[in-house]
């Protein structure tokens, strides 16, 4: 049983999506994350176990290696794609409630900013961490964030910005969220953002890389449990 999960984790970490995908070349014609997740369910491994013992640790390793600059954005994106192909098999169990996610995470690039690569990376890493991600897209203003929080009041919120000047909009959105939902936790990120700026605008957390965001969410879950 462990062998299945170990193989699945290995495929995710190395970006092996399915049997026909050519990458990585040393795994040519072998099962990928897609087939292994399907087979794991068929042999009776619970979706919870697949999530906890394969997908989450694999994506955590990918995130940590990226933080240490051992891998680059392309490898991380391939790993995310492999993770996604395995996750597709778990989705019915999330929908039926048989498998619980760790929580909900709302994410968007702030108004005035159309950059979405960083935001997408964070969204995929957080999804790989076992969270349901509600992606609001790019150029998202305070109203859209507030509406999403109204619909999902327990969700953690993530704001992304790439331009120094759209960081100002980040500040306006944080203020609007905190005014209406004072207990909502807000993460901020993006190339020009710093911890100092995060504190200045009243956000709760800043991470320079996606794995930092995943780790912060993990901490919040343990705090909520205690």
């Amino acid at each position: 049983m462990d062998n299945f999960l170990e193989k699945l984790a290995y495929c995710i970490e190395n970006g092996k999506i399915n049997k026909t995908s050519p990458y990585p070349p040393n795994m040519k014609d072998q099962d990928g994350a897609d087939e292994l997740a399907k087979k794991a369910l068929e042999v009776g491994i619970k979706p919870d176990e697949i999530l906890e013992n394969a997908l989450i640790p694999a994506m955590a390793n990918v995130g940590n290696r990226f933080s240490k600059k051992e891998i680059y954005v392309p490898q991380m994106l391939m790993a995310a794609k492999a993770m996604n192909s395995a996750m597709m098999h778990l989705k019915p169990f999330f929908q039926s409630g048989e498998t619980k996610r760790k929580g909900k995470f709302i994410i968007g690039t702030v108004s005035g900013d159309l950059h979405d690569i960083g935001k997408n990376l964070v969204a995929m890493m957080i999804e790989g961490g076992g969270w349901e991600v509600i992606d609001l897209g790019v150029d998202v203003g305070a109203e859209k964030f507030l509406k999403a929080i109204d619909e999902h009041p327990d969700a953690i919120v993530g704001l992304s910005a790439l331009l120094t000047t759209t960081m100002e909009n980040m500040k306006k959105i944080v203020t609007a969220i905190k005014e209406k939902h004072s207990t909502s936790k807000i993460l901020v990120g993006g190339a020009p953002v710093t911890m100092e700026y995060c504190e200045k605008i009243g956000a709760d957390f800043y991470s320079p890389d996606p794995q930092g965001a995943v780790n912060y969410l993990k901490q919040l879950v343990s705090l909520r449990k205690n």
């Binding site: 392309p74 994106l77 391939m78 794609k81 979405d116 690569i117 997408n120 990376l121």
Partner: peptide
């Protein structure tokens, strides 16, 4: 490509 969740291709185009 990004919308189709082919993030790597979308990223390289970008």
């Amino acid at each position: 490509a990004m919308q189709e969740r082919d993030l790597l291709k979308g990223y390289i185009y970008d």
